[in-house]
Amino acid sequence: MEDHYKITSFCSIRDQTVYKDGEEYYTNTEAATVKDFAKGVYKHLALNYAKFYKMDDLCKLSFLASEVLSQGIEFPEDTALVLANHASSLDTDRKYQESITNREEYYPSPALFVYTLPNIVIGELSIRYQLKSEGVFFVSESFDADFILQYASILLETQKASQVICGWVDLDSHKYDVFLALISKTGNREANAAELNTIYSKL
C-alpha cells in the first residue's frame, strides 16, 4: 500500500469489552449472552436504529464496531468494505437448522434465513451508511492483514474507493472476535500489515 494511506481509527470487540483506538470504551461482564451484550452497547451509544434488533449477532457486533468507528468521522458513499472471518454465518446457520428440523412443525423463518450468509454484514453496513461502494467478505482460517490490506490497496489505488473499512468479524456461539479499521489518507499510523497486525493482536 502506498505510504500516504493511514489507519485512521480502529475498534475491537472482545470478551464483553469494546475498545476504540486501543482504549477501553465499554465493558459489561454481566451480560449473559451476545445479544444482551450487544443491546448494552447499543444503549450506551444511544442509537436510534430499530433495524438493529432484527439483525443476527454477527451483524449486531459488526454494526456496533462500525458505529464506534464512525464517531466523529464521515463515511462517504464510496467507502469500501473489506471483511473476513472464520466461522462464516455458522452461528445463524445452526439456529436456522434447528428451526426446521421438526417436520411436523415446519415453519422456516424468513427473518432468520436472510442472515444465513456472512456477506449480509456488508449489506447491513451499506444500508446504515448509505454506501454505494465495493464490498467483499472473505472466509479464511485466521485474520490475514497482508491479504486484507492488499485488497484494500487495490480499491484505493484504482480509485474505486476513497477509504476502506476493513477487518475481521468472527462469531461462533458465544465466542466472538471483532476488529474493524478505517483506512484513509488521515491518521497517525501507517497502513501496513505489520501495524494492522499489531493493533489487531494487542488487545
Binding site: 430499530a50 432484527k54 412443525e105 415453519y107 422456516p108 423463518s109 424468513p110 427473518a111
Partner: peptide, 17 residues
C-alpha cells in the same frame, strides 16, 4: 410501524403457524 418485506413474510408464517 415501519415494517419491511421480510416482516411481511414473517407475518405470513405467523398466520399459518
Amino acid at each position: 410501524l415501519g415494517l419491511d418485506s421480510i416482516d411481511a413474510l414473517e407475518l405470513i408464517v405467523m398466520l399459518e403457524k
